[in-house]
């Protein structure tokens, strides 16, 4: 078992009170697993990704534990996290386009970063070149400034930098959002390739693009309003979702090859909006939008394993 997150609670501190962005998130991530993390904006998926590597100044760890390779991950202690960062847990940020220092040549920046992390740059030069080649970049990009690269190239450079020390866990936060469809695909494929070659052990791929994650991920976890709604293998989530939210989310996706008029209907959205997380409602957080809601939904449904490897948090499925 690579990663085990147990009842993780991370709140944002604001002037009006705590925003319960992660309110008891529990899941496991196996060795070699690529998990797609999907959900609407504001459901806590990016917060979960960030929490695993570095809490920013507004985020507060309220409760819950994280274990990586059977070792505790002290996310509340910024200094204690430093040895883990990059070596064990790494990140491809949402803003990969601007993640490189604009006034340093890329190669020089990498060397300075490596030296600061106690790695001799010469030891990994060959590996660096090999991996750049793998994502289709020439070693001469190391001698360039970020401004000289296209967005997709920068994205791939960041991908190579982030995985250079073979981290156990890689968090890819919305890495494909800013790319066009063909580049998205090549980025997604390189990620799988990196996993297959053992550069990274497992990966959490945060996205709102379910169709993309279906192609590359082994499992998909759907989050709703700071809670885990459902986690299962990618095909199960797409083909046999159990949680009403997941069902409606999948139902809102256009199907490949079919036109909506041929089916005689328009795409269905999910009526309503997610609840605010400043003072979240009690019970199931989806109940106000859920067509199947009944009296029991005023209690919070636990996340239970309804069949091996398939977890859902709904009174109707359990």
């Amino acid at each position: 078992m690579t990663l085990r997150v147990n009842d993780l609670k991370v709140y944002y501190q604001t002037l009006r009170g705590d925003v319960h962005a992660l309110d008891g998130v529990t899941f496991d991530l196996a060795d070699g697993e690529i998990m797609g993390l999907a959900g609407e904006s504001g459901c806590g998926k990016s917060t979960l990704g960030k929490s695993l590597i570095r809490l920013d100044s507004r985020m507060r760890h309220v409760g819950g534990t994280i274990e990586l390779d059977d070792k505790d991950v002290p996310i509340a202690d910024d200094d204690a996290m430093v040895p883990l960062r990059y070596n064990e847990i790494s990140l491809i940020p949402q803003y990969a386009m601007s993640a490189l220092n604009p006034t340093r040549k890329i190669g020089k920046m990498i060397n300075e970063l490596l030296r600061a992390r106690g790695v001799r740059p010469a030891d990994v030069t060959d590996e660096l070149h090999r991996r750049l080649e793998l994502v289709g970049l020439e070693p001469k990009v190391l001698n360039m400034f970020p401004i000289e690269l296209s967005g997709g190239m920068k994205q791939r450079v960041v991908m190579v930098i982030s995985t250079l020390l073979n981290p156990s866990l890689l968090i890819a936060d919305e890495v494909t959002s800013a790319l066009d469809v063909s580049t998205q695909r090549s980025v997604a494929e390189s990620m799988v390739e990196f996993r297959d070659r053992g550069y990274i052990k497992s990966m959490i791929f945060v996205t709102h693009d379910i169709s993309l994650v279906y192609q590359m991920a082994d499992t998909i976890m759907v989050m709703y309003a700071g809670h885990v709604a459902e986690k299962a293998s990618a095909s199960t989530i797409i083909n046999e979702p159990k949680h009403p939210y997941t069902q409606m989310l999948i139902g809102a996706l256009p199907e490949v090859g079919s036109t909506s008029t041929a089916q005689g209907g328009r795409l269905e959205g999910i009526p309503g909006t997610p609840p605010g997380l400043l003072n979240p409602p009690t019970g199931c957080r989806f109940k106000d939008r859920c067509p199947m809601a009944f009296s029991k939904c005023s209690e919070q449904p636990p996340l239970v394993e309804i069949e091996p490897g398939h977890w859902a948090a709904c009174w109707k499925t359990g």
């Binding site: 920013d56 883990l84 990059y86 940020p93 803003y95 993640a99 604009p102 300075e112 600061a116 992390r117």
Partner: peptide, 27 residues
Amino acid sequence: ADYSNYLQALGAPRRLIRRYAFRNAML
């Protein structure tokens, strides 16, 4: 800035990040 956040996430020491920030702030 994003590059500072990225470096922090990768555990780079404050000294390195400050050096970059200082140089870029000079411009």
